[in-house]
Amino acid sequence: MGALHHIILDTDIGSDVDDALALALILGSPEARLLGITTVYGDTAPSGYAWPGRFGKLAGQEIPVHHGLEQPMSGREVWWPGHEGSLHDGLENEPVEEEDAIRYLTSGRSQKRPGEIDVIAIGPLTNIAAALESDPALRAQRAAPLDHGGGGFGMDEAEHNFRSDDQAA
């Protein structure tokens, strides 16, 4: 077994399977410990962001989920919002964190272990950019990888996550 990776997942998890699959891979990896999930872009209200925590429970893990920014910094309209989690009954009964994504990303919890927590951003980079604006010292303090799921080769247009908030990217 390789080294243990402590991870915060920043995601626009919604109706597409891609982010749910990434979450499942992290939850199923013995080399990964998911510390928290931050949601971004679109329906980040409790009804939309509670279901990643439910997926954690299904995997036998209690994962705190923090709601992030709904609107991109670029001012672009959110594509196809408002239906995240709509097929999951009882989400209103799922526990959710009061602390928002920006406070969580800049909190002492992640800064007590600089360089030890990987942030994996698989949505628009709105929360990440807002956290850096909120706490400019965060760049130097974290000194940990920021992995982003975006971009593409041979595409005629920008990849969705970059296009959704090019200002944050």
Results as ranks from 00 to 15, higher is better:
Ala50Thr: 12
Gly42Arg: 07
Ile120Cys: 10
Ile117Val: 15
His160Ile: 14
Ile26Leu: 15
His5Lys: 15
Glu84Met: 11
Ala130Thr: 09
Leu87Thr: 10
Leu23Lys: 05
Leu25Met: 10
Ile13Cys: 11
Glu77Pro: 01
Ser47Pro: 03
Gln71Glu: 07
Val119Glu: 12
Glu159Asn: 10
Ala45Lys: 13
Glu94Ser: 01
Gly42Leu: 05
His148Trp: 11
Ala168Lys: 03
Leu132Thr: 06
Glu97Tyr: 00
Ile122Glu: 04
Val78Ala: 09
Thr126Ile: 02
Glu92Ala: 14
Gln71Tyr: 02
Pro145Trp: 01
Pro64Gly: 11
Glu31Leu: 04
Ala143Asp: 14
Ile37Pro: 07
Asp118Met: 15
Ile37Ser: 04
Gly123Met: 07
Gly53Pro: 05
Glu31Val: 03
His5Gly: 00
Ile128Gln: 05
Pro72Val: 02
Glu84Tyr: 01
Arg109Leu: 13
Arg33Asn: 13
Thr38Met: 12
Gly60Lys: 08
Phe153Leu: 14
Leu21Lys: 01
Pro52Asp: 06
His5Arg: 14
Asp43Leu: 15
Pro145Glu: 05
Gln111Asp: 03
Thr38Cys: 14
Pro64Tyr: 07
Ile26Gln: 04
Ser74Lys: 04
Pro136Gln: 08
Gly36Met: 09
Thr106Met: 03
Ala144His: 03
Ser29Thr: 05
Gln71Leu: 04
Gln111Thr: 14
Leu132Phe: 14
Ala3Tyr: 03
Asp19Val: 01
Arg113His: 12
Lys57Arg: 15
Glu116Arg: 14
Leu146Met: 09
Ile122Gly: 02
His6Cys: 01
Ala169Trp: 09
Glu133Lys: 13
Gly154Cys: 11
Glu157Pro: 00
